[in-house]
Design a protein around this nucleic acid. Structure first.
Length: 224
DNA sequence: TCATTAAATTGTT
DNA sequence: AACAATTTAATGA
C-alpha cells in the first residue's frame, strides 16, 4: 500500500484533501516511535511539527510549581495536535508524554503552512478541530474547581471518543485503567471505582483493557 | 488445537 | 502501595 493510502485511511483530514494535496502532505511527514513513559517534548521546547498519533496514546500536560500535574488533553490513535504552536511559531506550553509505546507522524511547519494557505479541505478540518477543542477547554475551565474524580475520568474518556475529532473511532477504545488514571490524574483505584459507577449509570461498558461508550453526550457533560 | 506458563490488567483493601 | 483474582498472550507439544 502507498503512504498516501495509509494516511487517507488513518487520518480524517487526509480524506478531505485532493490527491495532489495529500501527496504534498505525505512528503512533509516523518514518523517516529516513542517508548512508554518517554517525553516527546518538554514545555518551552521548540517543536515545530504538527503531530498526529499513528498508534499509541499520549497526553498533553504541565507540571505546576507545586508539582501537581494538569492534563490538558489526551490524544489517541488518529488525533492531531499542536496546530497553535506551529502556526504561531511558539514554543510548546505543555509537556508531551507517551503513556504507552507510541508512533507519531510529524508534519513539518512548511508543509502545514502550505496546506493551511492552499487547501480548502484542510481548513475545514482545522476549523472543526479548533472549534471542538475550544469547547473542551471552556468546559474544563468552567468546571475544573468542582470536578470530582469520577467526572474527571468521564471527561478524559470523552476526549478520546470525540466523534468530531475522531469520526473513525469505533464505540470501543483500547485503554487500560492504568493509562486512564494517568490521564485523569487520579489513582488507579479511584479510576476503577469511577468506571464501575459510570457503567452502573449506563454510560459505558467496562471491558478488559478497553472501554465502550454508550452515551457520549452525557459523558462529555458529566459534572455539569 | 490444547495445555502450560508468563505477563498484563483488574478489583479490593 | 500491596495483594489476589482474572484475562490475555506466548510458547511448545
Amino acid at each position: 500500500m502507498t503512504v498516501k493510502a495509509d494516511y487517507a485511511r488513518n487520518f480524517v483530514w487526509a480524506g478531505e484533501l485532493t490527491s495532489s494535496e495529500l501527496e504534498r502532505a505525505a512528503a512533509g511527514i516523518v514518523e517516529r516511535n516513542y517508548a512508554k513513559g518517554s517525553y516527546i517534548c518538554h514545555r518551552d521546547d521548540k517543536f515545530d511539527y504538527w503531530t498526529g498519533v499513528v498508534s499509541g496514546l499520549i497526553k498533553l500536560s504541565t507540571i505546576g510549581l507545586t508539582g501537581k500535574a494538569t492534563t490538558y488533553a489526551g490524544v489517541g490513535r488518529g488525533g492531531w495536535f499542536g496546530e497553535g504552536s506551529v502556526l504561531k511559531g511558539e514554543a510548546r506550553k505543555y509537556d508531551i508524554v507517551a503513556l504507552r509505546d507510541t508512533r507519531l507522524a510529524m508534519m513539518n511547519r512548511a508543509t502545514f503552512v502550505w496546506l493551511h494557505e492552499n487547501s480548502i479541505g484542510f481548513n475545514h478540518y482545522l476549523l472543526r478541530q479548533l472549534n471542538e477543542r475550544l469547547g473542551q477547554f471552556i468546559a474544563m475551565v468552567e468546571h475544573d474547581r468542582i470536578l470530582d474524580a469520577k467526572a474527571r475520568v468521564a471527561r478524559n474518556l470523552s476526549w478520546l471518543f470525540n466523534p468530531v475529532l475522531y469520526p473513525g473511532t469505533a464505540q470501543t477504545i483500547e485503554i487500560t485503567q492504568d493509562e486512564l488514571a494517568l490521564l485523569a490524574g487520579v489513582s488507579r483505584a479511584v479510576t476503577n471505582r469511577s468506571l464501575q459507577e459510570l457503567q452502573a449509570e449506563g454510560l459505558i461498558v467496562v471491558e478488559q483493557g478497553a472501554v465502550s461508550v454508550r452515551d457520549i453526550a452525557t459523558l462529555t457533560r458529566y459534572g455539569d
